[in-house]
């Protein structure tokens, strides 16, 4: 937890958001430079590491943000606002994929006790794909909170801003999400 660096914590203000809405190129460039990496990472781990798909979703997220910039309220952080939009875009993405009947990657059995061993670490690529596949099998709201919390390192309060849920609701969603993913991964 707490992996967010200073750069990641940087936020642009509401005035800059208004400039974005007016088509200010500098403000748009600042928005992208400030948030594109974070949003990309948030998306990337939810789409099984498919770079092109992740980039498409990030672009859709920022386009939607510009379109709805006039509705942005200064009380919220721009990052949580963008995470919220991106979460919806990812959900849309998985809905489309389900319609196309693209099954997630098959899961493989592995031994948890080997996680610390060098062999497992060497096989990290395979391990990563299993985690991605498990994430893709989760319901959208479970996947969102898990990635926000344990990959993006957001606090419970920040997740509340993104999802619009209460603290209790976020915590219970996190707990159910972990159980669900543990079951998918066959963790004991």
């Amino acid at each position: 937890m707490g992996r967010a660096s200073d750069k990641q914590n940087r936020e642009i203000n509401a005035e800059q958001v208004q400039a974005i809405q007016q088509g200010d190129e500098k403000a748009i460039a600042e928005l992208v430079r400030t948030y594109a990496e974070r949003i990309y990472r948030f998306v990337y781990h939810q789409v099984g590491g498919r770079e092109e798909d992740a980039e498409d979703i990030v672009q859709e997220t920022f386009l939607a943000a510009i379109k709805s910039a006039h509705r942005f309220q200064g009380s919220a952080r721009v990052s949580t606002w963008l995470y919220s939009i991106a979460a919806h875009k990812v959900a849309d993405y998985h809905r489309r994929r389900r319609r196309r009947k693209e099954e997630p990657l098959p899961l493989l059995e592995f031994n948890l006790s080997e996680l610390d061993s060098p062999e497992v670490l060497l096989e990290k690529t395979e391990l990563r794909e299993r985690i991605w596949a498990a994430l893709e099998r989760l319901p959208d709201h479970y996947r969102t909170v898990l990635v926000l919390r344990y990959i993006e390192g957001l606090t419970i309060n920040e997740i509340m801003e993104v999802t619009g849920q209460s603290q209790k609701s976020v915590e219970s969603t996190l707990t159910r999400a972990k159980r669900a993913m543990a079951n998918i991964l066959n963790l004991k």
């Binding site: 990030v58 898990l146 344990y150 990959i151 993006e152 972990k178």
Partner: peptide, 15 residues
């Protein structure tokens, strides 16, 4: 599980 996810978090991911 948290450790597994942190393995992903530790990886450098860039567009």
């Amino acid at each position: 599980l948290e450790r597994l996810l942190s393995l992903l978090a530790a990886e450098p991911v860039h567009p």
